[in-house]
């Protein structure tokens, strides 16, 4: 039994993609700016150096007990390997968001594919900020954070001199996501023919 107020997000990708930074900015926006309860954990040590990288957010109106994800409501996968590894505990009505340029085999049709890295490259001129583009989309589609707070937290957390570039990237992600209509997606990550079996 899970309390309804618990909402879990997992950011995943590979080391160097800025996965953890994106999660920390979102946590800061929710916790310090929106004033909700949030708990953020991340892969650490050898796991975090190269290879897969992940960060998790638990968001709640009430106190948060177990600090890590139990069943994920939203999974962001920025690489195929991360998608394959971390899809397993996505809720049936959870949402998968992937970088369309990096994740070719999407395990469910209840997924949003957006070209985060391509947007970063073409619109901002730096692939480096693909994480912030993705964060914009996650922030928008999760409905768990005010976009104003997301912007404020971003400014407070990114290195000096990179604020404008990161802000643009975040906005580009929000814009891309705002064109998505979630109601057109299947209601479950399990496809209809599987449910019928």
């Amino acid at each position: 039994m899970k309390s309804r107020s618990r909402y879990e997000i997992r950011f995943s990708g590979s080391g160097g993609q800025g996965i953890i930074t994106a999660a920390v900015v979102m946590a800061d926006a929710i916790g310090a700016f929106d004033g909700k309860n949030v708990c953020q954990t991340q892969s650490y040590g050898p796991e975090a150096r190269g290879g897969k990288s992940k960060a998790e957010l638990v968001i709640s109106d009430g106190p948060i007990d177990y600090p890590k994800a139990l069943q994920v409501d939203l999974l962001l996968a920025m690489t195929q390997a991360a998608c394959d590894a971390y899809f397993f505990d996505l809720k049936t009505d959870g949402l998968l968001i992937v970088d369309s340029g990096l994740v070719e085999q999407v395990p469910t049709s209840r997924a949003v594919s957006l070209p985060f890295t391509q947007i970063a490259r073409q619109q901002i001129g730096r692939e480096l900020v693909a994480n912030m583009v993705a964060l914009g989309a996650v922030g928008y589609l999760s409905g768990q954070v005010s976009l104003e707070s997301l912007h404020a937290a971003l400014l407070a957390r990114v290195p000096k001199g990179t604020e404008e570039m990161n802000r643009k990237a975040l906005q580009a992600g929000i814009d891309a996501a705002s064109k998505i209509d979630l109601s057109t997606l299947p209601r479950s990550i399990i496809s209809d023919w599987e449910t019928e079996l």
Binding site: A32, F33, G35, A152, L155, A156
Partner: peptide
């Protein structure tokens, strides 16, 4: 200067 406003209890 940036006018960053954080949530206050």
């Amino acid at each position: 200067k940036n006018g960053v406003k954080r949530y206050e209890e």
